[in-house]
Nucleic acid binder design. Structure first.
Lengths: 219, 219
DNA sequence: CCTACCGATCGGTAGG
DNA sequence: CCTACCGATCGGTAGG
């Protein structure tokens, strides 16, 4: 009697389904990720796919988790060795730009796509995406506060304003890369980040003396 | 013999279909805009809908045109009276923020949604959205150049960099409004714009004297 | 503008 | 993991 698929092999199949699902969803959205299409590309039956997840929504949530693991591997995990505060922020944002520049997801930032797709609706998928975004922003917030306390960012830094503008730089990068295939966009992103997160250099004291004079400065 | 629907009434029906289509697509995307759903909401048959457009793709392109007309009415048409250069840019960006703040489209910026939905694909819909975006960017480019020539923006302004950052401010606004229902986002957008497009005020000469000292300045 | 269809595909289930 | 099926919905057509 030939043994059935081992548990480890079942898990491996499940992971292959999820990896393929992330690729499909990053291009065509989580609604474009149909069970039939996934089954065809995996050369499995639809029931074979669904057996791993039960429902499409469970599959979609598992795909989101898989994409989150990939983001973690590509961005925060790469800069974990960096110190806290401004050095971390600069390294993390560089990794963030690099992750979009290298096209880690074939359809651009997975979370931007899914956020745009589900932001007008309710439900667990929207909630999952919003929670991941909140988590990442909280991480940035802690390091911005640290940078303010340690004097690397101006004392009157508006934390939420800075996060708002950092987010804009990244969203714009994704936009110009995906819609215009604009190869100059990563350089523009880096230039904007350089201004938002100035390097703690020898000229720091000079920059500090200028910044507060700015009517709309603050960071 | 009762007369058939007049041509003007046919056009009115067509317009009602398109208005409804824009509302649906801004929330659920152009793929979520199905003929069956449109027919149900309009209390018409599917054939009645399709008779106006022939195919779904023609309908989708007509919906994009309708959304573009709405954007034109809400943003550039409102600031046409403003002069050229910096005053125009400031007024146009304020109208742009206001258009998102007021929720002109129920699901946020129609074009951001559709761009995110189709940016990984090819075809006429993607091309139409990209063309509209190019058109609007060209308009901004002309006014930025005018502002540089007239001295309202620094001579070493990087036009594409400024457009990149303005786009980021607006994308971030849409993101925080739609995903987080963050009511403070419009104020953050205005604050960021204030810095990117400083008011030509009495303190202008002071600001000018500071800006060039900025290592990463330029605009 | 309608009814009445078409083949294809959707998510999902039964039973093995 | 499979085959075989379900009702619902998709875009679209024929004919009026």
């Amino acid at each position: 009697m030939s043994p059935r698929k081992s548990a480890v092999e079942t898990r491996r199949t499940r992971q292959r389904i999820l990896d393929r699902g992330v690729a499909i969803a990053s291009v065509d959205g989580l609604e474009g990720l149909t069970i039939g299409r996934l089954a065809a590309e995996m050369e499995m039956s639809k029931a074979g796919i669904l057996g791993h997840f039960g429902t499409k929504e469970t599959l979609q949530l598992a795909v989101i988790d898989t994409a989150a693991e990939l983001f973690t591997r590509e961005v925060p995990a790469r800069v974990r060795a960096t110190g806290r505060g401004l050095p971390y922020l600069r390294a993390a944002c560089e990794a963030w730009v690099s992750y979009l520049e290298r096209g880690v997801f074939p359809g651009g930032c997975f979370f931007t796509s899914v956020a745009a797709e589900f932001d007008g609706r309710g439900g667990p998928i929207r909630d999952a995406v919003a929670a991941l975004q909140t988590q990442w922003q909280r991480n940035l917030t802690l390091h911005i506060r640290h940078a303010v306390v340690s004097g690397d960012l101006s004392a009157d830094t508006d934390v939420e304003q800075l996060i708002y503008e950092l987010t804009g730089v990244i969203l714009s990068l994704n936009h110009f890369l995906q819609l215009n295939h604009d190869a100059t966009a990563p350089a523009r992103a880096r230039r904007a980040l350089q201004r938002l997160l100035p390097a703690p250099s020898a000229e720091l004291s000079t920059a500090r003396s200028i910044r507060p004079q700015f009517s709309n400065g603050g960071y």
